[in-house]
Computed example of a mutant assay.
Amino acid sequence: MEIQNSINKDIEEIFRLYKIATDFQKSKYIVHWPEFELNLVQTEISENRQWKIVIDNKIACVWATAFSDPQIWEERNNDSAVYIHRIASNPEFRGQNLVQHIAEWSKQYAFNNGKKFVRMDTVGENPGLINYYIKCGFTFLGLSKLKNTDTLPAHYYDATVSLFQIEL
């Protein structure tokens, strides 16, 4: 298992994993991911903020990072944090605790970048997902009603989010 930055040739696979995740969300929940813009992923790749776990030369999981997330984290955005977004797993690798690996990696990544927190959010209140993220080492901070979502992806409009963090 190796964690690497995603590259442009990964874009097709990244969007395939997003579609799988979105289809799963549609089958289980009311809120699901919208279709993400290609330029969003291209920008993340060019800025070394799009990541992948590679197992046996296959992409097992992808996610993105940011060092600022003001519309979701509001005044807490002033804290020194790394934010994790859009974790999508390849179904071939489910059950391998990939989010746990991301959580462990993100602590070192945050430390290396002088950050004090690793943060993540999910739309809505999903008790199963909340418990899973707690098991992966995150603290559940509660629910937050978003106020300013005009430049966020569509699934955040008029949303309540579950907030998580790991404090280093």
Rank of each mutant, 00 (worst) to 15 (best):
E75K: 11
I134H: 03
E125H: 10
D56G: 03
L143N: 12
D56S: 05
T151N: 15
K26G: 06
I134C: 06
F67A: 03
E35Y: 06
F111G: 14
I20Q: 02
L163N: 14
N97Q: 12
L146G: 09
Y157N: 11
G95C: 10
N5D: 01
K9Y: 09
S144Y: 10
S106P: 08
E37G: 15
L17G: 02
N57V: 01
C61W: 11
S144N: 15
P153Q: 00
T65G: 07
R16Q: 02
I55V: 09
D69N: 06
P70T: 13
E44S: 15
K135Y: 15
K116F: 13
R16S: 02
M1G: 00
E35V: 07
N77T: 08
E44D: 15
Q4F: 04
I134L: 04
Y133Q: 02
I45L: 00
V99Q: 05
K26S: 08
G142I: 05
S144H: 14
A81C: 06
R76W: 14
A110V: 08
H101V: 15
A81G: 04
Q42M: 09
Y29M: 06
V41H: 00
E74Q: 15
Q108K: 11
G95S: 09
E75V: 13
E104C: 09
H85G: 03
E13T: 06
S144V: 11
E44P: 07
I84H: 04
F93P: 02
G142V: 05
Q100V: 10
Q42R: 11
S80C: 10
G137R: 04
N77M: 06
R94E: 10
D56M: 02
W51L: 00
D69K: 03
R94K: 14
P91S: 03
Q71N: 14
K52S: 01
E75Y: 11
A60G: 04
S46N: 11
V161E: 09
W51K: 01
F15S: 02
G128N: 14
Y109K: 01
V62P: 05
V41W: 01
V82Q: 08
I45N: 00
Y83R: 05
V99N: 05
T122P: 12
I166C: 07
E47K: 13
N48V: 00
K147M: 12
F93K: 00
I14S: 01
T139C: 08
A110L: 07
T22P: 08
E35W: 02
A81I: 05
I55E: 05
D79G: 10
N113Y: 03
V99G: 08
L146P: 08
E104I: 11
P127N: 02
K107T: 00
Q165Y: 09
F138H: 06
N39T: 15
N126E: 10
F117E: 12
A64Q: 06
N5S: 05
K135S: 14
E35S: 06
N126D: 11
W63N: 04
P91H: 01
V118E: 00
N8A: 13
T160M: 15
I87V: 14
N113L: 04
A154T: 11
N78T: 15
W63F: 13
G137P: 12
K147I: 12
K58L: 10
T65C: 06
